[in-house]
Design a protein around this nucleic acid. Sequence first.
DNA 1: TTTTGAGTTGTTCGA
DNA 2: GTCGAACAACTCAAA
Length: 454
Amino acid sequence: MSIWWIRRDLRLQDNPALGQACADGAVLPVFVFDTALWDAAGPVRRAYLVNSLQLLNESMAGHLIVRYGDPVHVIPELAAEISAPSVHIGADYGPYGSMRDQQVEIALTKAGRSLIRTGSPYAVAPGRVTKADGTPYRVYTPFFKAWLAHGWRSPADNGEPQWFAAPGLVSEPLPVVSRSVYLPPVGESAAHQLWHEFQQSGLNGYDDGRNRPDIAGTSMLSAHLRWGEIHPRTVLADLDESPAHTVFRKEIAWREFYADVLHHTPTSARTWLNPKFEQMEYETGPDADQQFEAWTQGRTGYPFVDAGMRQLLTEGWMHNRVRMVTASFLVKDLHLPWQRGAWWFMKMLRDGDIASNQHGWQWVAGSGTDASPYFRIFNPVTQGLRFDPDGDYVRKYVPELRALPSKAVHEPWNHPLLAVEYPQRIVDHAHERDESLRRYAAISEDKAALPNAD
DNA sequence: TTTTGAGTTGTTCGA
DNA sequence: GTCGAACAACTCAAA
């Protein structure tokens, strides 16, 4: 028998770590609520995890063992308690997770047991795709080509597990979470059903539809992928060579690229990948705090930005197009460091993934791998008019603006009598755009002015 | 070895 | 109103 330590692979199908555990006989499935991670999660993330675990437990006939505390102690203690020779996991490539797993491995090894990593949350494990000289890619397109050439295996059947039940071994209860948060269906079967439905409906129009937050143009699979309720290779196996499918495959590859980048540079979860941006002038102090607060609550006075931030507050999810616009607003209109926004997103997003989130932010900030050029500063009004042309998305999340017809919602300052309750703009975009360009030029000049800086 | 061209997601300005 | 140019700096692969 052995332990299957569940972390971010909440599924039974096509699960190599579980398959490996089954090869050792009966399997004891375990989930540990790690205080360090739990405390950083907002209500939607917490509810998502607990609901998904509940469903997983049902599909395991109630054999899940729940524990609380630091896995570095909890896992070795449990292994000792039931005399399990090995603990099976899917590998974690994040900075926190990989460090934690190393410590668990050391503790297990000392006791004569082993930690066995099988599979990862990716089609191609981070670190496997490199340039000819063995160094990692720093630009997406060459990575994508090499990733495609590397290939991945097809989804595999890992058999019917035999669950282990030791007399006297009792699970602790799952945490109590808010029932009032909005959640779409969670769990493995919901993930497969959603993917099936998306193949029938949106996938073939994905290349155009994915940019439109006002229509159901995206797969909505992000949280299912994040929690491992479905594996990316399951999704990839259903794609063909059509243009729409190719665009979708490239989005899966972005997720893999960012995981690879973070794996090679773990510090990029916290600091600028391009160190030049440390020198940038950022706003601090009470005024900055107040503007940050307005941004988090969807009260910037820019309807497209506010709609996105309120969607995040109420649903724990935001359309990708709007994530870019709201992120650009924090970094380039409010001149706050990307880390502040990334922290808020991680807390609030039900699909919050450290690699995709932090590097999405670094891309917008211009400090990341394959970064957005510094001059690409999103105009929140233009973006709204282009990608929410009838204003339906804004009206859905900003009730104060419902009296404004069609695209007029994107410029409520032109219709003050119809938007009395709606906040005034907290900054002037045209002015802050110039200010951002000025601050960027300042850190670029520094470099040229200091020839001996190296 | 060196050179060259291309590279997710945009905006503004001026002709 | 439409359209092309300009807005850096750097990585990477092909020539």
